[in-house]
């Protein structure tokens, strides 16, 4: 029926025109759905795509008076400081490893908490703990670092005092690079778990209740219900969040690392990430172009990784892929 219509309308038989006709037909047939997407399309066009040509700034010696596009082109020079320092590998290693741990452990904990909270019957308990778990998300990195310092600093820290009054020996954490991957990961988990749990909790609550009831009737115990119903239902969400996180795997959380570690270079070996390095190198030498160059480099790497990851997911389970 549709094809008939198509044939009647396209009186010219040239294949390109048929294609074109089809396209417009597709548009008109989906116009409501397209219109529903239109605000978002417009939004991203205005706020994300419009500025994109400005990425050109990374290849220029930016002159304020001339504007981005009339500034002299200097090729890869703005990228040079990042590649010539001999530390890029260490920085990439740190950045990526931290992100992998954050993503895997973070999502694992969030799923666990979401499932556990779902088991709780007391509405009061559920609401209160959820609100409490959200609190760390609100505490800015500066205050978090202050809290950590107050807890573990050698001379006056809360833990030091406790350890000393118990006759123990307090380790000097701020001179121990080996301790910081653990501290940073702990802080990150502490900050993000409440927020992330909500995502999975919402996914669980939209599961059809009848499935769980049926399972119960069939005699499935708590572990089995989690294993065979809840976890499979959460899988798409997990996959999508992981895919999303992968795109930013070479981008670090500057605020967290910078505030916790600061200028304490004794710890850099295990805590220096791309962002903190760039901050040190460009501090007091203000340069928009070099900053953009680093961002572009990170985006390109992230993009390549996401394309591969999404391709793999698409091959295995097309419905789970991002696009």
């Amino acid at each position: 029926m549709q094809l008939d219509l198509q044939a009647k309308r396209s009186k010219v038989s040239a294949p390109t025109l048929v294609h074109k006709e089809k396209f417009w037909y597709k548009i008109s047939r989906n116009r409501t759905l397209l219109l529903m997407c239109f605000p978002a399309i417009l939004f991203f066009f205005i706020f994300s795509y419009m500025p994109m040509p400005g990425t050109y700034i990374a290849f220029t010696k930016f002159n304020y008076n001339k504007g981005i596009f009339a500034s002299p082109f200097i090729g890869w020079k703005n990228f040079q400081f990042l590649f010539s320092n001999g530390q890029l590998l260490l920085l990439l290693r740190n950045t990526v490893l931290y992100n992998i741990v954050f993503i895997l452990l973070g999502n694992f904990l969030q799923v666990v908490f979401a499932i556990l909270l779902n088991e709780v019957m007391s509405k009061w308990f559920k609401k209160t703990t959820q609100s409490m778990m959200f609190l760390p998300y609100f505490i800015s990195d500066v205050l978090v670092s202050l809290l950590v310092y107050n807890l573990i600093n050698y001379d006056y820290g809360f833990i030091s005092d406790t350890v000393r009054s118990a006759g123990g020996v307090m380790p000097k954490y701020y001179s121990m690079p080996g301790a910081w991957p653990f501290i940073i990961v702990l802080v990150n988990l502490w900050k993000g778990t409440g927020y992330g749990t909500v995502i999975y909790f919402a996914a669980i609550t939209s599961i059809d209740t009848s499935m769980l009831e049926a399972a119960k009737v069939d005699g499935a115990n708590g572990f089995q219900r989690i294993r065979y119903i809840l976890l499979p239902c959460l899988k798409p969400t997990v996959v999508i969040l992981l895919l999303f996180a992968v795109g930013g795997i070479v981008k670090g959380n500057f605020g967290l690392f910078y505030n916790l570690v600061g200028n304490n270079s004794l710890l850099f070996n295990t805590t220096d990430i791309i962002e903190t390095y760039v901050y040190r190198a460009l501090m007091n030498n203000f340069n928009f172009s070099q900053g953009s160059a680093v961002g572009l480099f990170q985006s390109v790497v992230g993009f390549a990784i996401v394309m591969v990851a999404n391709g793999v997911v698409k091959r295995i389970e097309p419905e789970y892929s991002l696009f």
Binding site: K77, F81, S84, N85, N264, S265, L282, M283, N285
Partner: peptide, 22 residues
């Protein structure tokens, strides 16, 4: 400029440790 950026990083890495004898 790229040498200066890297020198700046080196200075900011080593100098605080030397300054406070760590």
């Amino acid at each position: 400029s790229s040498e200066l950026d890297n020198l700046s990083n080196v200075f900011r890495t080593y100098a605080p440790v030397i300054t406070f004898g760590k």
